[in-house]
Every structure is written in structure tokens, then in C-alpha cells.
């Protein structure tokens, strides 16, 4: 579903992302892990065609991010941290606005809305203005916006930032649910404990480089049951 090959991004003599290669298959959650400034967000922005790679390329759902940006976007959903949604629109209006870009209108929109409402449990808040919604409800609107067109690839970038314990739990449960539908997810975070819960494979990023990649079980073994410890050991040049 996602295949990155030598993906790189430079900013005036600095490699923000340095020749990154990885693949994510169907029904798989890939954890892109690392501290702030490791290059995770830049990587996701390149996959989402928001940034142009300086070198290398990637394919999302079979479409090249350099050659077919609009096709890539049609097959992608993004959930960012911070619950950023248009505050002066209602939940329904936000979803209708974005759904239209994917050609989802009329009856098709109503069907998708029912599907996403049932999946996330959000039917009662749809007609509220976003600015009147709780943090958890906003987060559901953000997720619904990202998956209403049922993208085969979903990118989550620090998606639990600013969430309370209930909303965080709901998001992690959603990740597993969406994986269960056979979709590919890239879960980018600096919170290793979250990755331990939802990821199937992980890649450690540091200084723009992918310094480790393996299955969650392998990484946990490396860190004696902790991804955080595995990350530190890997950076210190341990096993």
C-alpha cells in the first residue's frame, strides 16, 4: 500500500529526511517512531504530497507521489494532532465540505455519514458547531473527515496530542478497528507506549534517518519489553 524508496528532504544543507525506505502492507499499522524533529512529520507530508521530495520517491496505493499527486490524495487520509477543524461549521458541514472533494455527495454522502457515525459513535453531535464540541468530539470529526472517503492508506501524525485519556483510548481503539478493515496505517508518534499497543511493525527515526526497522515483537525483544528502551539502545549502538 505504501512503498518509500530513498525518500529524502533537504533544507539548506540539512537533511530533514535522509534516504528513507520502508513499506507498509494492507491491514498493517506501521509505527514511525522518534523524538520531535526526527523527520516524521516531514515524511508524512511528503507521502501526502504536501512537500516535494528532494530525492527518492514513494508510492501510495500504487500511485507515485511525484507524478500523480491528486490520485495519491484521493487514496489517503490524514489525522493530525490538535483537533484542527473549521470551528464555525457544524460537524456535518465539515464532513460534507471534505466529502465533496472526493465526489461523495447526495445519497452516497448520507450512507458514508451513517457508516462513519456508527464506527465512531458521533451521530448526536453532527449538527453542533465544532467550536461548541468537546475535545473528544472534535477528534472524532477529524477522524471522520480523514476516513469518510474510505482511503486505503491512513496517516496519523501525533494524533493523540492534546487528547484526554478517554479520547486517547478511543483513538487507539479506532486505529485497530480501521486496520481490521484491511487498510494500511502509518502511526507517527514520539509516545512509544502507544506504538506498543497498536503497531505491527515499527521504524525508529532519528536525525532524518531510519535507524531501525522491525516487527513490534523484534523491537520489544531488543528493548526487553519496551520500545522506548529499544529506541535508546539502538541509538547508543547497542545490540
Amino acid at each position: 500500500m505504501v512503498k518509500a524508496e530513498g525518500l529524502s528532504k533537504t533544507y539548506t544543507h540539512t537533511w530533514a529526511v535522509d534516504h528513507l525506505s520502508f513499506t507498509v502492507g494492507k491491514g498493517e499499522v506501521y509505527g514511525l517512531l522518534g523524538p520531535n524533529g526526527a523527520g516524521k512529520t516531514t515524511t508524512l507530508r511528503m507521502l501526502a504530497t504536501l512537500l516535494r521530495p528532494s530525492a527518492g520517491t514513494a508510492a501510495v496505493a500504487g500511485y507515485d507521489i511525484r507524478q500523480q499527486p491528486l490520485e495519491v490524495r484521493r487514496n489517503l487520509g490524514i489525522v493530525n494532532g490538535g483537533m484542527q477543524v473549521y470551528e464555525r461549521l457544524t460537524g456535518r458541514e465539515v464532513l460534507q465540505f471534505f466529502a465533496g472533494f472526493y465526489g461523495i455527495e447526495g445519497r452516497r454522502f448520507r450512507e458514508r455519514l451513517e457508516w462513519v457515525s456508527a464506527l465512531l459513535g458521533m451521530d448526536r453531535v453532527l449538527d453542533k458547531l465544532v467550536r461548541e464540541m468537546s475535545t473528544g468530539m472534535r477528534q472524532k470529526i477529524v477522524i471522520a473527515r480523514a476516513i469518510l472517503h474510505q482511503p486505503p492508506v491512513l496517516l496519523l501524525d501525533e494524533a493523540t496530542a492534546g487528547l484526554d485519556v478517554f479520547a486517547r483510548r478511543a483513538l487507539l481503539d479506532f486505529v485497530l478497528q480501521y486496520r481490521g478493515l484491511g487498510h494500511a496505517l502509518i502511526y507517527s508518534t514520539h509516545v512509544m507506549s502507544e506504538a506498543e499497543e497498536v503497531c505491527d511493525r515499527v521504524g525508529f527515526m532519528h536525525g532524518g534517518k531510519l535507524v531501525y526497522e522491525g516487527s513490534k515483537a523484534e523491537a520489544l525483544a531488543l528493548g526487553q519489553g519496551s520500545l522506548e528502551r529499544a529506541f535508546i539502545r539502538r541509538l547508543e549502538g547497542g545490540a
Binding site: 490524495r73 489517503l76 490524514i78 493530525n80 490538535g82 473549521y86 472526493y102 473527515r145
Partner: peptide, 14 residues
Amino acid sequence: EKGTLEALLAAPVP
């Protein structure tokens, strides 16, 4: 500033 621009630019719209 509100962080909504990224989602809009990531939509399949020229």
C-alpha cells in the same frame, strides 16, 4: 494558525 490549512491542501483539489 488554526492548523486547518494542511487538511485542505491534502484534499484532491488543484
